[in-house]
Design a binder for these strands. Structure first.
Lengths: 244, 244
DNA sequence: CGGCGCTTTGACACGAGTCAAACCAAGTGG
DNA sequence: CCACTTGGTTTGACTCGTGTCAAAGCGCCG
């Protein structure tokens, strides 16, 4: 079962650099402070200067930016093994909020500890830079979706991306996965209204492509869905280490 | 004038870490291979594995992702002092293309040289990580715009952001700046059609907010434009070094 | 039993896309 | 020096995807 903190995160970094014993050790020291958070209460607040980042161990969170008019845009969802709030410790002030979608478990990483770790083991810094690039690639793909895809393509793409990411940590496969998101979450992520999200989901269901219902996503016709969304998982970059 | 390669980039990194003589030296070695490129011919091709990144010295470029249906989405514009294609050397394959908008000058940085530099001077790696975070913050802000702002707000925001960034390298101020973009570029960046871009520009001009014409952007009423776009430059993060 | 999130559906309005055509300035070649 | 081309801008008419408003349904928990 699994997804122990160190497992998921170290495994992820290990996909880029072959980590030495020392590096693994430094890494494991980074997640001594385990904490849990309840759903709906932000771990990181938009606009504040935070001292800490987190390595997510279990549960889902979303990072978002809220607008003065009350609407919000979800930047990305994070799942176990993901690093949260790197930008909020590197930049002076956090430009986004981070909210747990369900109850979560995470390891808190203080800014100074992280910077020290980088200074001590440069390859770790490079690995984190790689992981950050991979996350940015996802944000970029999301941006492309908002700019150039219509509602159903966006939805299909998002559901497929989540599926592919979950599959990497053993929480889903080509048949589907458990998904705690509400249609409001999807709306805020896809730049749509909740009402339209519902219409799109119905349409995808009626065309027997995907079913989103009762906290579960079922891929009814994976290949056709991939074609509709023009989904190419290359940007998730899960090939072997580049740096040995 | 100015914007010598090393100047702009080193100055930028210096905003995050106070760079030592050694670090400055390593940095300057990174831009020995100066090259020029003509407008319209990609420096980096989408989907290829590239070995090199670039530090832009003069001119404008855009990074974009093109869709199978022929449309393209511009991710971001880069101006002198910006680092290009970090993702394309860290990830196995470049997920985006990079195209010069005018003739440009840039220093080529080979993957191995960059990784070696990181290994030798960890603080440099941290600084680059910071710069990458700052770039990501811009991409995120762009994403929010596509998801939650209408055409004129998006346009206003983009023109303001470019102005603020150019001001940081001494190429513009609150009165305006020179801008080599066509309305097609704006359309591809803002997720609009070129026709609609034109309508929006006309409207902003008629309301005496900004004028985009003849390769020059003039802010006719900066405060009111900021209000319309809800522009908060905090994410451009240009406060003093955090790491000394 | 009552209430509160979340989902579902319908009717209507509007922002932005598409298509088509004209215009303009800057090159380019005869 | 004048046609001609080409890339970019401008405008109008029409269409359509998505937002908005409103209301009902549904399950779950206190």
């Amino acid at each position: 079962m699994a997804t122990n903190i160190s497992d998921a995160f170290a495994r992820k970094l290990g996909a880029f650099v072959a980590l030495s014993a020392t590096e693994l050790d430094v890494l494991s020291r980074l997640h001594r402070r385990r904490r849990t958070f309840v759903a709906g209460h932000d771990l990181v607040h938009q606009g504040q200067s935070e001292q800490a980042a987190y390595i997510l161990s279990s549960g889902w969170v979303c990072s978002y930016k809220s607008q003065p008019d009350g609407s919000r845009q979800i930047i990305d969802f994070q799942i176990p093994g993901d690093f949260l709030g790197l930008r909020s410790i590197l930049l002076h002030t956090s430009d986004h909020g981070i909210e747990p979608i369900v109850e979560i478990e995470a390891a808190e990483v203080l800014r100074q500890d992280l910077l020290d770790a980088f200074a001590r083991t440069p390859r770790l810094a490079t690995a984190v830079l790689w992981a950050a690039s991979r996350d940015e690639a996802m944000v970029v793909e999301h941006l492309v979706g908002l700019g150039r895809r219509n509602a159903s393509e966006r939805m299909a793409h998002m559901l497929l991306e989540l599926g592919a990411r979950l599959a990497l940590v053993g929480m889903g496969d080509k048949s589907g996965y458990d998904c705690p998101l509400t249609q409001y979450h999807l709306a805020d992520a896809l730049g749509l209204s909740a009402v339209h999200v519902n219409r799109v989901l119905r349409q995808l269901r009626e065309e027997r492509l995907v079913t989103f219902r009762g906290g579960h996503v079922t891929f009814d016709d994976y290949p056709r869905l991939v074609a509709l969304a023009d989904f190419d998982p290359a940007y998730l970059d899960q090939m072997g280490p580049m740096l040995r």
